[in-house]
């Protein structure tokens, strides 16, 4: 039997994902050990797992280096790769939002005279150019986006917001909600066909698990 390979977005998402997978019998003890390995194998069930930077997970899945990827919707929206998005895993919940200093920009939010700083250029393009039909100026940043409006680089930011505490600490407020985010299960398009039996079983298992979780809440 060929291996089924999982790519997991490094960090909390991966931990939570492994917990879920373990519940449906797809665990990997090797991963729990402290080692410098990059690829972990569970020979009993012929599964392999690796951790990758979130932005790279869709790439691994699209090319077929991984059959299944678990990654945030934010990354999938930004990367827009050719793969199956089969299920909302309902954890890692947060949202894309536009934030800024309410007193300064409220009247310009819908005008073309707006500078937007973001890490998510494609998401911002889609939101402003396609959905809001605004020709705004986009500025690509790589981190600490909250700084941009504070030091006057941009009017607003489009970023992931979880609790909003970082925004608050910097005097920023959510001005527009863009879309909700959570962890997603992505599948390579060829694997979906060639390893259909195993993958569909995993999807069914996870769907059952998630809906019973819903009911318990």
């Amino acid at each position: 039997m060929e291996y089924l390979t999982f790519a997991l977005a490094k960090g909390r998402l991966a931990e939570k994902a492994m917990e879920l997978l373990e519940e449906i019998g797809i665990g990997c003890d090797e991963m729990k050990e402290d080692s410098r390995k990059l690829l972990f194998t569970n020979e009993d069930i012929k599964c392999r797992f690796f951790l990758a930077k979130a932005q790279d997970v869709p790439t691994y899945v699209e090319y077929g280096a991984a059959d299944i990827g678990i990654v945030g919707r934010d990354t999938l929206l930004e990367e827009h790769r050719n793969l199956y998005q089969v299920m909302d895993l309902k954890f890692g919940k947060c949202r894309f939002a536009v934030a800024g200093r309410a007193d300064e920009v409220t009247d310009r939010l819908n005008s073309n005279d707006l500078r937007v700083a973001t890490k998510y250029l494609n998401v911002a393009k889609d939101y402003y150019f396609n959905k809001k039909r605004q020709t705004v100026e986009l500025i690509k940043l790589n981190g600490s986006v909250e700084l941009a409006p504070v030091v006057g680089l941009s009017d607003v930011i489009l970023d992931i917001v979880e609790t909003g505490s970082t925004l608050e600490a910097n005097g920023l407020k959510v001005l527009e909600e863009v879309c909700p985010l959570s962890a997603r299960l992505a599948v390579n398009r060829v694997s979906m066909k060639l390893k259909y039996d195993r993958i569909s079983e995993i999807i069914r298992g996870l769907k059952e698990l998630c809906s019973s979780d819903d009911q318990n809440r």
């Binding site: 060929e2 699209e62 090319y63 077929g64 050719n82 390579n188 398009r189 060829v190 066909k193 060639l194």
Partner: peptide
């Protein structure tokens, strides 16, 4: 048509 070895049809 699909076959292993490429992520595309």
């Amino acid at each position: 048509g699909y076959a292993s070895g490429t992520g595309y049809s």
